[in-house]
Amino acid sequence: MNDEVAVARPELEEAARRAESRRGFLIALPAWFYLTLFFVIPLGIVAVYSFATRSSTGRTILGDWNLNAYRRLWDSLVVEIAARTLVLALVTTLICLLLAYPLAYYMATRRPMVRNILLILVMIPFWSNFLVRTYAWKVLLGSDGPVSQLSQALGGEPIRLLFTNTAVLIGLVYGFLPFMVLPLYAALERMDWGLVEAARDLYAGGWTAFRKVTWPLSLPGVMAGSILVFIPTLGAYVTPAILGGAKTTLAGDYIVSQFLAARNQPFGSALSMGMMLIMLAATIVYFRWFRPSGRDL
């Protein structure tokens, strides 16, 4: 029996730890490799393209690097589109919050049986095909669609909502509302309702108890839901493409048109980079200040 070999020493412990670490790395490797190839490199290419030049025929010349594409980001048209997109995203988020909070509160305060049924009722639209759900509004809002027909049947004017900002707003709220309800519900359901009772016991009225206890405790859910609605709304493409019109161009459409119509890849790349930076900023703000307690991400 050779004790020299088998007795623990710091370097052997370290070697074992390193072998374990290597094992983890190897398991992580395939996904890492895949994402490097199909995500990191593509991201790099977009970054590179944003400094390239567009030839008169619409080809991209890799060389003659410049900041022209970024300069165009300050064009009044681009600023207008960005502002419209931002306002629309904020309004959508706010409306979703106003609709979803009472709903989530209502759900969380039901009996478990009712709660589960309501949860399923929210999950169904959440999982349903987004394109189809948006299309349903096109059917509803069309000039000879049910909404307009109903208005006329009641003796009113035909309603022309399709291809307006309002239609896009309705579509976005409809599309992303479940993304707001679910995190809010999760936060409220997890909450210790004993705390609300404690507040009531300490002479807080119903409204005060809500303001001082329920609302602050549900803030992580509010933030998570807001980020889940705000970010995809900023980049929305399908909804405006279906429900919006020529005068309602949003950032998403605009970027797509740079590639599929205008064939200005450097400018489209610069737009993408700009949008990505806004998202990253929003996400970082979220994780810095409203990081959901508990798990380390």
């Binding site: 029996m1 004790d3 088998a6 007795v7 623990a8 020493r9 710091p10 052997l12 412990e13 074992a16």
Partner: peptide, 16 residues
């Protein structure tokens, strides 16, 4: 695993 030392089970070194 211990950082240092010997651990035997019925005389057989098992530390690692």
């Amino acid at each position: 695993f211990p950082t240092q030392g010997s651990l035997r089970l019925h005389g057989v070194e098992m530390a690692l």
